[in-house]
Write a protein that binds this DNA or RNA. Structure first.
Lengths: 187, 187, 187, 187
DNA sequence: CATGAATGAGCGTTCATTCAT
DNA sequence: GATGAATGAACGCTCATTCAT
């Protein structure tokens, strides 16, 4: 019973690496090879390629949530957001292949509406923090999906900048957060 | 040769529709079918699928630029940005398939570095406007690529919101712009 | 009326060059391009690709015959054969593309039995010379086709050697002829 | 994996038959059909069509060598050559499709220089026999490639004659050998 | 006649999935 | 379970040939 889960993990890790390297069109054979198993064995653990990719999408989304939202210290709202911001950028910087896979998957049409909804539910707690920060600002009262997308847009811009130019990571981290805070707060 | 350009256009339009409907992995056969021509005929007008997609990418990028940046009225910076913002969201709302295609293409690795550079050059005038608006704000002095990505992130969030919920288009338009202006300006 | 023949010639010359460069699978489009005409124009001068290749085969075969067998001086048999041998090797050395095309065509199955028969008839006079030389030797009385093939085999070996190593052309010329003469004569 | 080699063999046999029947441009689909397998299955056993054809070329070349050069009896040079000559003609007569395939392949440009070199190395022992027989004759001291080509040319002429007119096989066999021996020996 | 765009069958190759071992 | 050979539909692309201009 421990083995099946371990095999599943190995396949998912291999899938991350393969996706990051070759895009969503990476073959299941390439994933199997990277996992060190036979081509056909993947299908003992996942119903289909689509099933595997959806499972991976959910795992990665949950991983981000855990990395970013676990044990947020009791503190002022700005300090809490700063913690979240920092963890988010750090996760992206430390796991570029995972970030790339997650992004490729979220843009691919193999990810079902159900998977997307699950992922969104997952991140609700995080968005809610930003929602509180938006009180009185221009996005006060806007739907969560909109607010979340705005925040995500700014965060992805910072992640891309850091990945492109890691030596100025601190500068992008600080400027990005200042911009985001500005964006949320009343003028 | 009554209209070699007309056939090219028909293929590109069919490609937009097919990409929007089926993703980047849409087959050239599907595009040909939608264009009402034989499969092989595509290759009289484009060297390869990659060539077709790059041409489409450049056309769409130029189309956005023309729609958004043409004849910006002499006015205060805020009014100019508001014009740009409005035209951008309008283009997206009016051409959802084109927007989706452009996004899918820009995330795909068939688009060459050269195409991307051409597109970036194209949009330089627009980004420069935002750069001027950022003076004194948290993104003052940041690289153009970072600033552009932040602005794009906010704009895409607004476009998605409007597409999801067109009845509140005005609200997303106004709140998005206020947030963007806040983000750029000094606290 | 002069023009049609000129165009035909141009196409055949282009076909030779294209065949030599790209093999029998060379496209008619490539030949048309090399001839400086439109793809479709080839089919105003030749019924089909197969028709073109058969015509080329016959032209080349006739060209060899003319180059090798025209005006053979009255002389002893050995001297006559030496003239033929020399002209044959010279033609091959001077027209490698034509030789290669002729060989490719003769091995291809687009050349009909009729074309082959025509070419064989053409060369009968030449083979007859060798037949006379074979009198009393081991091939005396053998069918013309067999005798011709043997002679051809020796000649092609010499041509290949000269093409591979042109500096020793004289040596291959002389040794090849001596071997051929030995082969034909009584022990 | 009951017999991975068996499938490989079946494909190679089907390739021989298909090549002999349709020429080098025979499709892999036709080979698969003749082998009774799916089109795609060929590519589990061979990397590509070119890989398959090169493998076939090497197998056939080795097969000829084994059939012709194995266990040559200790005897006078003439008797040894006669054994080789006989085995060579017999192999060709018994395996016309294999001979035709080998010839088509050797003239095709899908066969790599490496394959050709391997095949040449393979046959060195045979050519060396003819080289010894050439001592004192017109081809004494000529490069192996030239000598080999001459011998091959005479042999192929005999094979063709036998194939065309099997009833006189003995006559072509004897006359061909006499001619070859004459060719090699001093006048 | 010349043109070259259009055709559509066919090519070599890939790949998710199945299944006998 | 694990294996990997087998499948066959699909893919991007080529090409001889046709035909409206």
């Amino acid at each position: 019973m421990p083995a099946p889960q371990a095999m599943r993990r190995r396949i998912l890790e291999a899938a991350v690496a393969t996706l990051a390297a070759e895009g969503v069109s990476a073959s299941t054979a390439a994933m199997a090879k990277r996992a060190g198993i036979a081509q056909g064995s993947i299908f003992h653990h996942f119903e289909s390629k689509a099933g595997l990719l959806n499972a991976l999408y959910l795992e990665l989304a949950e991983e981000v949530r855990a990395a970013v939202l676990a044990d947020i210290p009791a503190a002022g709202l700005r300090e809490q957001l700063l913690v979240v911001w920092g963890r988010w950028l750090d996760w992206a910087a430390e796991h570029p292949a995972r970030r790339r896979s997650l992004m490729l998957l979220s843009l691919s049409d193999v990810i079902t509406a159900e998977s997307r909804a699950g992922s969104a539910r997952n991140q609700a707690a995080g968005v809610e923090l930003f929602q509180r920060a938006a009180a009185g600002g221009p996005l006060d009262g806007q739907p969560i999906a909109f607010l979340g997308a705005v925040v995500e847009g700014v965060a992805y811009a910072a992640m891309d900048a850091i990945q492109r130019d890691p030596e100025r990571a601190g500068q992008y981290h600080a400027a990005g957060f200042a911009a985001l805070w500005n964006l949320l707060r009343p003028a």
